[in-house]
Amino acid sequence: MTDEPVLAVRDLVVEYRTPAGPVRAVRGASFDLYEGESLALVGESGCGKTTLGLALLRLLPRLGSTPHGEVRYRRADGSTVDLLTMRKEQLRRFRWHEAAMVFQGAMNALNPVLRVQDQMYDTIRAHRSMSASAARKRCHEVLDMVRLEPRRVMPSYPHELSGGMRQRVLIAMALLLSPRVLVLDEPTTALDILTQRSIVDVLQELRRELGFAMVFVTHDLALAAELADRVATMYAGRIVELGDSRDVFAAPRHPYTAGLIRAVPPAVGEATEISSIPGGPPSLAALPPGCPFSVRCGLSAEVGDGDGPAGVCVQADPELTRTGERHEVACHYSDRVEFTREVVVDGV
């Protein structure tokens, strides 16, 4: 393993064209993804996390574009390439072979009129010339990896599979060409608890065995805590906190992250107070001045002595700055964030 990141995102901006003019869904995101590492992008709905995930593979819908920034990918041989300036055919070869994506199985992610095996063969054939029996063998391998029975699943149509099975098929399909980076978009959303559990187990195991790096987009903090080495919290199109998941979950330095964690009941240990963050996420088309979180921020209100947010919060949008060895936060008062949870009931 080297110190160079496999994926380096710098100041990435994603814009959507709307009738009212361009709206920035991602406003300058920067992060590194190292080999074999797992990074979680967490945040509320509409904070731009899925858009960022799609932008990494340049899969934005027609109206989306990336006017600024770079997504630098380092190949196994050490050469680097900026995805945003790749040509069409180059990009086609890059996708899935170098970086694959696991979509939500609950979505209509599989073509309803083609058998699972044909969709898998399609994927192989688009990138490699492989004999039919070798392709078949490879499909069996990846389906075995996600603990599906190849003989049953391969000749099925997507509608004949349950949601959990479809999700596994999508994971298996992502592994077909042994990519070095995997982007997962809400891989467990819309599945029942037990199915979620088994998907998480499969992902853990695969990462241990295959050693790919992964970026996964989720609003499920428990999943992030379990699967991620590092966590990036997104708010209004920006990464507001980035750090090792242990640090971030034990001692968040951004009031928004702290609020998110407080809103989730802990699965083990003492039952603590649960509190929500007041207000809702701001519209990306009309962001408040300064820090976009200031209007909902309890800390800022506290500093401002009840006259609304503190002056500096309204004047300037804070930059992501280093506060710990591997911890970056975008908050003017990050040193004053206190994270304690009041215990309501002991030892449940």
Binding site: R92, W96, A100, F103, M107, N108, L110, P112, D122, T123
Partner: peptide, 17 residues
Amino acid sequence: GEDYVTVAKARGLRDRR
């Protein structure tokens, strides 16, 4: 606009396919 078309693009399938 269907998801499976986006997914097919992500899989690097050729445009004609």
